[in-house]
């Protein structure tokens, strides 16, 4: 239990909060999905640091689940949502 790791997790949290601007104004749909993926990785890092900072090693397992399921949303998006819109209006992705 050390407060230094909690400070590191606290530094990483505004990175998530400011990345939200890209979701709000991203021109293509892939930009928004990429930001969600960055959030996933940031969340894994925050969980790892917080697990040491709060003295609960259980958080490693939660980070493991996050890392396992990180690609699922992006894969679904690319394979289903984005592929479909390319057939309808070519080169003009869903906004």
């Amino acid at each position: 239990m050390s407060w230094m790791h909690t400070v590191f997790a606290l530094i990483l949290l505004p990175a998530i909060a400011t990345g939200m601007f890209r979701i709000l104004k991203g021109p293509t749909a892939a930009d928004r999905m990429m930001t969600a993926q960055l959030f996933g990785t940031c969340g894994v890092a925050i969980l790892l640091l917080l697990g040491t900072g709060m003295g609960t090693p259980v958080l490693l397992d939660i980070a493991l689940v996050f890392a396992l399921l990180a690609a699922l949303a992006t894969m679904t998006f690319v394979r289903r949502t984005w592929q479909y819109s390319s057939k309808r209006n070519h080169g003009n992705p869903i906004q």
Binding site: A29, T35, A36, F39, G40, L47, L50, T81
Partner: peptide, 20 residues
């Protein structure tokens, strides 16, 4: 679509809140 992506991010922050 923006709302769905925001909802995915929201679930992630909710996991952080449960951890806290």
């Amino acid at each position: 679509f923006k709302a769905v992506v925001l909802f995915i991010s929201f679930g992630l922050l909710m996991a952080l809140a449960w951890v806290r």
